[in-house]
Design a protein around this nucleic acid. Structure first.
Length: 839
RNA sequence: GCGGCUGUGGCGAAAUUGGCAUACGCGGUGGGCUUAAAAUCCACUGGGGUUUUCCCCGUUGUCGGUUCGAGUCCGACCAGCCGCACCA
């Protein structure tokens, strides 16, 4: 008897699949399509079981769908541009391309060893000009439409990355790549994509994703976009002496109804008006000093959270446009320049922050909203702000109105009188994409002294990265130090000009890569529209929760831009999203720096890919974090050995026998002996539940447990030759093999062959379960008295209620609990349970 | 502070719809096979009792509610994890 030898089996079948081109697909409108995709990896470090879990889940889905008759697109590629490659290249004195391509080769080898059913012809690598030229092409289309623009702005700067970061890449004030490095702010001229233009759509369309995307991700995106509706109101500055007539301060508020309660205006320290207001005011000297102090103080996020509110009076007053009341203008550290207008009205009685500020600086706290019912607020007993809706008071002509009405009327009046307007403000900002580094897509523009910013003509794309940059990891973009790249003729006037030397954020690469898989070698366009129309949207996307905002928000934005460019007809690229849990060791995610990595290749060497795949599926449900255990994995290994031995034991006897149900034939096996009946019943019951777990519930761990149970049952019925005909043996073993095939494809293919099949297992369809064979003829009925189990009955299935009750009452365990009492009622769940209610 | 998720044996976990809680696996204990070990096979593995193909009790973070019946539904609380966080 040959032992289960995963290395030999896995190599054998991987070669067969490749030779037979089993996983290669083309658009084919005669078949239903299914696009399943795992997030593309960044080729760095070693592939560990965390990666493998992601691809295993996707591969199970791909294989099940294929067995179900779908035309399945399941591609793989590389997120190959990026800072770590550049840094590693500097460190190892090599070129980022060399470093990256070595990693890709390594990653690819490991992925192939796990037998994932990718169509490798569609492989893409984002650092290749064939790919990134289309980043440039998209950028130019956005530029033409004003969706890409350049401006000087305060940006996040990571001193370790030596580059600008997007807001999404700043985590609690720290760099997302360097958890110990505080992000600084700098004033830099850079390129932005107008994500804000799509803010409303990005928010609205989240509704269409409900059900298909995890609620968590939808909520996170909704919060990130952060819509609030309110009004902008202009306050005139009362006494600005420098003659700037009409000088005014604009604030944003969501509670215009409380404006009569404003006791100050508060500006952000960075507000441009602050210095103007201070000039010549009574508070000029003290104010300047405080402002300097405030602007210099730490931007560290956790300090900001706990920091006290501090502020100072500017010496100026503003006029409430509704009441004409004169109120002081302050500067406050808690007011954000980046949100709204950079200025707020301070309504202490009805806003917690304002209350805190006003209490500290002894500003007035006028009450202008009273609760609709219940205790009325009085000035002397106000201990905290009342932020609920209610009824306006002390609000001039608006007194007596409900909050809702007051808001509507007051914003309408403000609009009519020209000092305000209704406005919606978003937390989402435009996406800054300039990076001052080498290893990324060059931004395809040229700066000409005569013509200004000039787009590189499409015909000149791609703008290639120079091959021999001086990489220092410091200062401005390495491209700037490469004269043959920088110096260029202006496409318009032909004069001397300079190229843009920044490169694009790598999230640009991953914002549309899944479209390229549909047509990866097209050199005329990013892709053929017809192919994309066939495959899209992605039916199932699988990846980590870490990308809940960044990648998934940018991708949605990109899709909408593409739609408006007429390149796609849908508005959302991803119909269903699944976020799998992390693989951890010692309670933390695997990472090289922590040294707790379980290498995928080591795994394949020790146990084989199938055991690795099975274990990651079995140890926890896919959405939950999985704690890796070297002990538990032995169980998966033992199980595959058991199954292998089981099939081998019977292979000889069943080889020549004709297959029945596994080949999809109409005629079913029928049970003759009791043993056959029991075996087939268990098998089809298992098949029914496994099918459900695979198709809709994604309870792979539960499915495996069921298959293990079936295996145990078959084992317990040995010797099968005694009482089970070979055709029934064959049927059962085939179904067992097919159920395992999506998860452990190599051993399944091998067993399929052992069972006498010439054609590969991948030709087989997912088997249908037979309800008749699965049906129980005899059932166990639980007898409860007042909800507590007091006995059990074995009766034929489908026995009517009136026959069961006498049996139940007569049960020895039941009798003592009902005697001397009256059975008030009985609840019967057919074939399952009977509950006698006594009083 | 706001929002979300999670809480079940020694451990990972299971339980369509409210219907036998702890399936499946790991670990552990005992046994068969072996000169021995590994592998493998068998039995047991919530507590207690016992006449051991038998009986009783407890139990899904805590407290309460709905229900004939709650791990599952509702309310409050506790703990842990994640996200957002002075967003006006």
């Amino acid at each position: 008897m040959a032992e289960y030898n995963p290395q030999a089996i896995e190599a054998k079948w991987q070669k067969r699949w490749e030779d037979a081109r089993v996983f290669e697909t083309e658009a084919d409108s005669s078949k239903p399509k299914y696009y399943v995709l795992e997030m593309l990896p960044y080729p760095s470090g070693t592939m560990h079981m965390g990666h493998m879990r992601n691809y295993t889940i996707g591969d199970v889905v791909a294989r099940v769908k294929r067995m179900r008759g779908f035309n399945v697109l399941h591609p793989m590629g590389w997120d190959a541009f990026g800072l770590p490659a550049e840094n590693a290249a500097i460190q190892n004195n090599t070129h980022p391309r060399v470093w990256t391509n070595n990693n890709i080769a390594e990653f690819q080898r490991v992925l192939r060893r796990f037998g994932f059913s990718f169509d490798w012809r569609r492989e893409i690598s984002t650092c290749e000009p064939e790919y990134y030229r289309w980043n440039q092409w998209f950028f130019l289309r956005m530029w033409e439409r004003g969706l890409a623009y350049r401006k000087k702005s305060r940006v996040n700067w990571c001193p370790k990355c030596c580059t600008v970061l997007a807001n999404e890449q700043v985590v609690n004030g720290y760099c997302w790549r360097h958890e110990d490095t505080l992000v600084e702010t700098r004033e830099i001229e850079q390129w932005f994509l107008k994500t804000t233009q799509y803010a409303e759509q990005l928010l609205d369309d989240l509704k269409t994703l409900e059900g298909g995307w995890p609620d968590r991700v939808i909520t996170m995106q909704r919060n990130w976009i952060g819509k609030s509706s309110g009004a902008k109101v202009r306050f005139a500055v009362a006494d600005l002496v420098d003659g700037a007539a009409g000088a005014s301060i604009e604030v944003f508020t969501t509670r215009i109804d409380t404006i009569y309660g404003a006791s100050a205006l508060i500006l952000a320290p960075a507000h441009p008006l602050v210095t103007k207001l201070l000039a010549g005011s009574s508070e000029e000297v003290a104010g300047r000093a405080k402002l300097q102090e405030m602007r210099a103080s730490s931007v560290k996020a956790e300090e900001l959270e706990t920091a006290d509110k501090v502020g100072f009076f500017t010496g100026r007053y503003a006029l409430n446009p509704f009441s004409g009341t004169k109120i002081p203008v302050w500067v406050g550290n808690f007011v954000l320049m980046e949100y709204g207008t950079g200025g707020v009205m301070c309504v202490p009685a009805h806003d917690e922050r304002d209350f805190e500020f006003a209490t500290k600086y002894r500003l007035a706290i006028p009450i202008v909203v009273q609760p609709k019912d219940g205790e009325q607020l009085g000035a002397e007993k106000l201990k905290e702000a009342y932020t609920e809706y209610g009824v306006s008071v002390n609000s001039g002509p608006y007194s007596g109105l409900s909050t809702e009405e007051a808001m509507a009327r007051m914003s309408a009046d403000a609009e009519a009188q020209g000092f305000g307007k209704r406005e919606t403000v978003f937390r989402l900002k435009d996406w800054g994409i300039s990076r001052q580094r080498y290893w990324g897509t060059p931004i395809p523009v040229i700066y000409c002294p005569n013509d200004g910013i000039v787009a590189v003509p499409d015909a000149d794309l791609p703008v290639l990265l120079p091959t021999n940059p001086k990489l220092t990891g410091m200062g401005e973009s390495p491209l700037a130090a490469t004269p043959e790249f920088v110096n260029v003729r202006c496409p318009k006037c032909g004069g001397d000009a300079r190229r843009e030397t920044d490169t694009m954020d790598t999230f640009v690469d991953s914002s549309w890569y899944f479209y390229r898989y549909c047509d990866p070698h097209n050199d005329k366009a990013p892709y053929d529209k017809h192919k994309v129309e066939y495959w899209f949207p992605i039916d199932q996307y699988i990846g980590g929760i870490t990308h809940a905002i960044l990648h998934l928000l940018y991708s949605r934005f990109w899709c909408k831009v593409m739609r408006d460019l007429g390149l796609v007809t849908h508005s959302e690229p991803i119909a269903r999203l699944f976020t799998q849990g992390m693989v951890q060791k010692g309670g933390v995610a695997m990472s090289k720096s922590r040294g707790n990595v379980v290498g995928a290749e080591d795994m394949a060497n020790k146990y084989g890919a199938d055991t690795g795949r099975l274990y990651t599926l079995f140890a926890a449900p896919p959405e939950k974090d999985l704690e890796w255990s070297e002990e538990s994995i032995e169980g998966s290994w033992r199980f595959l050995n058991r199954v292998y031995r089981l099939v081998e034991r019977h292979a000889h006897a069943v080889r020549g026998v004709k297959s029945v149900s596994a080949d999809g034939a109409q005629k079913r096996t029928t049970a003759e002996s009791a043993k056959e009946k029991q075996l087939l019943r268990k098998t089809h019951q298992t098949l029914r539940r496994v099918t459900l777990d695979f198709e809709t519930r994604w309870h792979f761990n539960a499915a495996i447990a069921l298959i293990m149970e079936l295996t145990n049952e078959i084992h317990a019925l040995e010797p099968l030759d005694d009482g089970v005909r070979p055709e029934v043996q064959k049927d059962v073993l085939e179904l067992l093999t097919l159920m395992l095939a999506p998860m452990t494809p190599h051993i399944a293919a091998e067993m399929w062959e052992m069972l006498g099949h010439e054609e590969g297992q991948w030709m087989a369809a997912w088997p249908a379960f037979d309800a008749e064979l699965a049906r129980e003829t005899e059932v166990e009925i639980v007898v409860q008295v007042n909800g507590r189990v007091r006995g059990k009955l074995r009766v034929p299935a489908g026995m009517p209620e009136e026959q069961i009750i006498p049996l139940a009452v007569a049960e020895p365990g039941v009798a003592p609990h009902i005697e001397k009492k009256r059975v008030v009622k009985h609840i019967v769940v057919a074939d399952k349970l009977i509950n006698l209610v006594v009083a």
